[in-house]
Design a protein around this nucleic acid. Structure first.
Length: 906
RNA sequence: GGGCGAGUAGCUCAGUUGGUUAGAGCGCUUCCUUUACAAGGAAGAAGUCGUAGGUUCGAGUCCUAUCUCGCCCACCA
């Protein structure tokens, strides 16, 4: 027999790399059943996740680590259950984000702007950037252990997906759900593009509220007005007051004069105005404010734009034309002061709209953009979730989703960028539009229209990144082609992502999935929380609290990081990642390794044949019963998405039951040699095997590695120890999830007896610790118990070994007439314990100790008696009452034993 | 203004059909380098589960109110 020796320490770094490479080479990441495979069975239901495609802008962060850990866990679980599991990988071109990065990079390295470079050259550079960062990010995703099917990897700008994007656009256009027109949109002056409502963030900031006079034409009177943005005065087209406001009644219908420009604008009455706020009079700027825009529509006011693309004042701004918006603000205020139009300024806390990307202040302005009419898409999307066809975990996010869907506005989908999907619309010189899948098609349309070939120009804008991400679950499977993959794998099963992109991504996928495929894109949405630092703060560069997952993996291993993220998280709840915790989980991996080493070592030297008739010991029966329970609990928890709790269950079972108790007792059983030793090995192998399988979705690397060694050692052993399933699969990643385990029919008894055994051991250990008995010193003891006599008698050896009792001086009886002299009395449930400890014996101290324990026991008896006498006895279910009754009996017998001991102690 | 989440041991957090002595990790105290493991083992201290009511035989768990913190949505100039 060749002994298999495991290295003393687990080298996670080299193992992770080697194990992942083997998985990938062996093709384990491909679904077990798929259309291109021989013997394809379309009736087998697959489990499918589309990866939230990482941006090609940068490197791995903890958000990636989180979703990879979570989704990999789900995929591995399903794969082990025998379900054909497909995890589709890919990445996102991330329009604005990437373009920004590349622009910054070019400016820094070559000192050129994108305009100097030109569109074509800039895109070439951006593709090069994409190649570089795509390589980095996919290597890092591998590092996390993602068992994605790399052969199906997609990129949002690749040919197939671009086709899907154009198809989607054309279909919406032809249905009349896409329109183009001037609307008030959010404009990012630095990026010189429109952004959607979702891309604007509002920051609380200190600012000023400017109070000034709106002069009335033909009088010396004025209306006081307040604003936070004085430069927008230049674009005012009305002054509004509340129709019932007594102060301003007389002005309604009058003409006001715009400061500095003396433009004539009406004073109007509108319910919208809040009489309490500011001066109670409101300047109306339909060109640069969303609410004013609405009021402007109601009153058919003209719209004036005073800002250009770069937020410089336009010629509409008269003397201020060409100035920057903030410079203009200062200048106009100074000029107004000179003309006695200024009343005062007040400091004011306001919410400032800023770009989610650049951070600069967003200007609402009128601009011609493309929009998706959202109502007809939102309705089915709302219904799909309300009806339960899509289930959101945790459930409370359903409300958040509904709230947003019900108040959704048309979606501005055009961006004035270069990096992205070009809008598939071409214009003729007369301005007529042709929306088509290809330029040829557009040209053909134009020819048909004009009766001759004409030149067309494609719309220079690109689409919002989220337009293409919205198609992700089906575009990655081949849509719009009716591919076999699409037929088999779509709709997908699970969409797992952070709750921060519920609206950006999840909601849009639901709308577009229903619109284009007529089906929900996925059945379940699992939303994880955001990863924060150990104090719950958002990680940010300015705070300096960013944790780099790569460093964490270097230091503690991927498994430790994954386990921490998975076990430390509850659906929808943020995770505060502490490195202490990762360290603790690294220790867990170490514990696994060492326990594995022990089990494998135990095989070496065990006999070759086993007596099948040999009865399991108490510890054997107990650990098997517990393994069965843990497996069942895990199963239930996995099915209800309570992965963290499942991980904790296995962690605790493995460490504090299997390692702390069973292995310790197994050492004794192994020392017995013969059949007993082999039987023990068998159980060690089987329970370890089950633990490794249950843990594999959490910590794939160490479990695969250890399991491989365990398998080799078991097969090398002459007895050819099987797993509980009877055979050893080729790798843990494709091993079956532990199914129902064979029942040995005496679980209840074993669980109860072992608990008493543990309590007995703990009491004696406790005594030794309290009395400072030297570890090596063997003590004599007597144990008495009517109920547990046989059990204790059978457990003499482990009992003595675990508590350092002298086996030859360990007496076990059914009852004790009188406490022997020089012995300290203890009680562990139904067991009376007497330990020879003459030198430590102080009757006064002992009496005090026993009295204290007795008082506690009596109190429990009283409490339980009272409980059982109350309505509880009648109304609570029988099993609950029975449990309490048993408990009461336990305390009664403990009290009786203590009374005996008290009597005997003087 | 509307909505959501959280408040449990010194710290960070688990605790999903309500079951009666509330758990973990880290930290803390005492002891132990015994051939799986000191990244370890044994024993231990530590919590009126934010507050006040309510439902119930029974509430950390359900309901109402309230306080504190965090987030999301809407944007009163």
């Amino acid at each position: 027999m060749t002994a298999i020796q495991l290295p003393k320490t687990y080298d996670f770094k080299s193992t992770e790399e080697r194990v992942y490479a083997r998985w990938e080479e062996q093709g384990y990441f491909k679904p077990a059943n798929h259309p291109r495979k021989k013997g394809f069975d379309p009736s087998r239901k697959p489990f499918v996740i589309s990866i939230p495609p990482p941006n090609v802008t940068g490197e791995l962060h903890l958000g990636h680590a989180m979703f990879v850990a979570m989704e990999d866990l789900m995929i591995r679980y399903q794969r082990m259950k025998g379900v054909p599991a497909l995890w589709v990988p890919g990445s996102d071109h991330a329009g604005i984000a990437t373009q920004l990065k590349v622009e910054e990079d070019l400016l820094r390295t070559e000192e050129v702007t994108r305009d100097e470079l030109g569109r074509e050259e800039f895109l070439k550079r951006t593709w090069a950037w994409k190649e570089k960062y795509h390589a980095i990010i996919s290597r890092q995703i591998r590092r996390l252990g993602a068992s994605v099917d790399w052969s199906r990897e997609r990129f949002t700008l690749d040919e197939g997906l671009s086709l899907a994007v154009r198809e989607a656009f054309v279909r919406l256009y032809e249905k009349g759900l896409i329109y183009r027109g001037p609307r008030l949109i959010n404009w990012s002056p630095g990026l010189r593009t429109a952004v959607s409502d979702l891309e604007v963030e509002y920051n609380e900031e200190d600012g000023l509220l400017y109070f000034f006079k709106y002069r009335i034409q033909g009088s010396d009177d004025f209306i006081p007005v307040a604003t936070t943005r004085p430069e927008t005065i230049l674009a005012d087209t009305a002054v509004a007051v509340h129709p019932q406001d007594a102060r301003y009644q007389k002005f309604i219908g009058a003409t006001a004069l715009v400061p500095m420009l003396d433009r004539h604008i009406p004073v109007i009455a509108d319910e919208y105005v809040d009489r309490e706020f500011g001066t109670g009079a409101l300047k109306i700027t339909p060109g640069h404010d969303a609410n004013d825009y609405q009021i402007g529509m109601r009153h058919k006011l003209p719209i004036i734009s005073i800002l250009d693309e770069a937020a410089h004042i336009t010629k509409e701004g008269g003397p201020y034309a060409g100035m920057d918006r903030f410079a203009a603000r200062k200048k106009i205020w100074a000029d107004m002061r000179a003309k006695d139009l200024v009343i005062k300024t007040e400091s004011y806390r306001q919410r400032v709209p800023r770009s989610q990307r650049g951070g600069e202040i967003i200007e609402p302005m009128i601009s011609t953009q493309w929009f998706v009419t959202i109502q007809s898409l939102a309705q089915p999307a709302l219904e799909a979730v309300d009806s339960g066809r899509i289930k959101i975990v945790p459930e409370y996010f359903t409300k958040v989703y509904r709230n947003w869907m019900e108040n959704i506005q048309d979606w501005c989908i055009s961006r004035q960028l270069w990096w992205g999907h070009r809008i598939p619309v071409w214009y003729a010189s007369d301005g007529s539009m042709f929306c088509a899948r290809t330029e040829e098609e557009a040209l053909a349309q134009a020819k048909a229209r004009f009766g001759k070939a004409v030149e067309l120009k494609q719309d220079p804008d690109v689409l919002d990144t989220w337009f293409s991400s919205g198609l992700w679950p089906f575009s990655t499977l081949g849509w719009p082609q009716a591919t076999p993959d699409l037929a088999y794998f779509y709709p997908t099963s699970m969409l797992e992502t952070g709750y921060d992109i519920l609206f950006f991504w999840v909601a849009r996928m639901i709308m577009m999935g229903l619109e284009f495929t007529g089906q929900v894109p996925f059945h379940t949405v699992y939303l994880h929380g955001l990863v924060r630092d150990d104090q719950g703060r958002k990680m940010s560069k300015t705070l300096g609290n960013v944790i780099d997952p790569l460093e964490v993996m270097d230091k503690y291993g991927t498994d430790a990081l994954r386990f921490t993220l998975l076990v430390g998280s509850t659906p929808g709840q943020d995770v505060n990642l502490s490195l202490d915790k990762v360290g603790a989980n690294r220790n867990f991996a170490n514990k696994l390794w060492n326990a594995g080493r022990f089990v494998i070592g135990a095989l070496d030297g065990a006999p070759a044949t086993m007596n099948a008739e040999l009865q399991p010991t108490l510890a054997d029966a107990w650990i098997w019963a517990r393994a069965k329970q843990v497996m069942a609990v895990c199963q239930r928890l996995f099915e209800t998405y309570q992965y963290g709790e499942a991980g904790r269950q296995v962690y605790d079972f493995f460490w504090s039951e299997f390692a702390d108790w069973y292995i310790e007792i197994a050492k004794l059983q192994l020392a017995e040699g013969g059949d007993r030793a082999l039987k023990t090995c068998d159980l060690l192998v089987r329970v370890l095997d089950i633990c490794l399988r249950l843990l594999h979705p959490f910590t794939p690397f160490i479990t695969e590695e250890l399991w491989g060694h365990l398998k080799a050692a078991s097969l090398a052993h002459p007895a050819n120890l099987p797993t509980h399933g009877g055979q050893w699969p080729e790798a843990l990643i494709v091993a079956p999830w532990p199914g129902p385990l064979p029942d040995e029919g005496k679980d209840e008894g074993a669980l109860r007896d072992f608990a008493i055994f543990q309590e007995t051991v703990r009491s004696i250990r406790n005594l030794r610790a309290e009395k400072n008995v030297k570890p090596g010193q063997k003590l004599a003891a007597m144990l008495a118990s009517t109920d547990c006599f046989e059990m204790l008698d059978n457990q003499r050896q482990p009992l003595a070994a675990l508590t350092q009792l002298d086996l030859d001086k360990l007496q076990i009886t059914r009852s004790m007439e009188k406490k022997p002299d020089g012995y300290v009395g203890l009680v562990a449930g139904p067991v009376e314990i007497y330990v020879s400890l003459a030198e430590a014996l102080d009757p006064i101290f002992e009496r005090a100790r026993i009295e204290k324990e007795l008082a506690a026991a009596r109190q429990q008896v009283q409490r339980l008696q009272k409980l059982l006498d109350s309505d509880f006895g009648q109304k609570a279910p029988d099993n609950v009452v029975e449990k309490e009754k048993a408990r009461l009996e336990g305390f009664k017998s403990t009290a009786r034993s203590l009374e005996e001991q008290l009597k005997n102690t003087r």
